[in-house]
Design a protein around this nucleic acid. Structure first.
Lengths: 207, 207
DNA sequence: TTTCTTTTTGGCCGCATGGCCAAAAAATAG
DNA sequence: CTATTTTTTGGCCATGCGGCCAAAAAGAAA
């Protein structure tokens, strides 16, 4: 019986951490390869060269495993994008940096992102509802919205709903993910630049 | 045995058309209510007050039923949006009309659209891949792209990638759908105006 | 009424999956 | 080496659904 660590503040053992990591990695690979719907525990276990029960042993459920993938990705993405935007001194620079860094992150993590996009649409609660939705994007959209508010405060940006703009930016960046998964000839650099230019014009105070 | 009408060009009988219509309507209701994942043939049949087999009798498969819903919605949406954009004389006006008409269509068909969004993410092929993807949006994006090209030709619009802009517009409009499904206090009119203004600035030739 | 066609019924079947468990094996402690 | 705990194994099971079918019912034709 694996000890539950939820209640106790105990850390995971080295072995357990390694196993969880391995399983998460294999799950990502399998999902990216055959799709979430076909990524059964059996298949993931096979990929890892272990028996199905091991996954159940280290994870309370399949849901916990998938959630772990999502959380990992969120942390990694934030770690990549945040410092790049914070390095900027102007709001316009930050917005551009946010867009370009996001696209760059997608480009350099295509496998992960492909899996993640599939998870996004497939991960469901017991009653079949999407487990991941806009609400899970609010945090990220807040980052954008704060940049926009800053720009309006400094007078760099014109007057517009920061909420609508933030949602639109997020949707635009998500579009890269979707395009990337559908076509494999996407020119990331050009696309990122176009997108950044687009929102630069959309936000700038008109002279 | 229901006669196959695929090969023969024969029209559907009055009765059959009515039944298909009723089943489609009930399917939409059930999907909007309990979600695609829980919308089993049994549940849809129950809603319609008929037995499960009737659906199998009038539709070759569940997939055909769902596809019918999608097709109907596409036709209805196009019928609503297209004339409104074509009524405009300038490219900028057309773009604005496209955005506002799309949002208005979503607002006035919330139940259908909620169901459709769920179908969009849930409808899968036998091997678990999404049946609906960007590729199914290309047609609609082409409409937008043509408006953009027109505007560039007339000199109303500045220089930008019409492809990127079209994708971004489409994503932005889809965002309304997503927001609408997640929150029920969306101010459609304000949102539509903000969005139209946003893309007006993004497309206008800078003076 | 009789005959033939269309439509409906209700139940059965196969299938795949996630969770579970008892027992074996491996690691660790004493 | 023995005792105890952690980890792994491999198989079993319940579940829900779409598709299918034979037979019943309803309807149309004669």
């Amino acid at each position: 019986m694996r000890p539950k660590r939820k209640a106790s503040g105990q850390d995971r053992s080295f072995i357990e951490t390694a196993r969880r990591g391995q399983i998460v990695q294999c799950a990502i690979d399998v999902i990216a390869e055959v799709g979430y719907a076909q990524a059964s525990l059996a298949r993931i276990a096979e990929r890892a060269g272990i028996s199905k029960g091991v996954i159940s042993y280290h994870f309370d459920s399949k849901d916990e495993l998938v959630q772990q993938i999502v959380d990992d990705a969120a942390v990694a993405g934030d770690a990549f994008v945040r410092p790049r935007t914070e390095a900027q001194t102007t709001a316009a620079g930050m917005l551009r940096a946010y867009i370009e860094a996001s696209v760059e992150f997608y480009r350099s993590h295509q496998r992960h992102m492909r899996a993640l996009l599939d998870i996004w649409t497939s991960f469901r609660t017991e009653d079949g509802r999407q487990r991941l939705g806009v609400r899970d994007n609010e945090a990220e959209m807040t980052i954008v919205e704060q940049i926009l508010q800053l720009g309006q405060a400094t007078g760099e940006f014109g007057a517009f709903s920061t909420r609508v703009m933030a949602v639109t930016v997020k949707q635009a960046v998500d579009g890269v993910l979707i395009l990337m998964s559908a076509y494999d000839d996407l020119d990331f650099d050009t696309y990122a630049r176009e997108l950044a230019d687009l929102f630069d014009r959309a936000t700038r105070k008109e002279p």
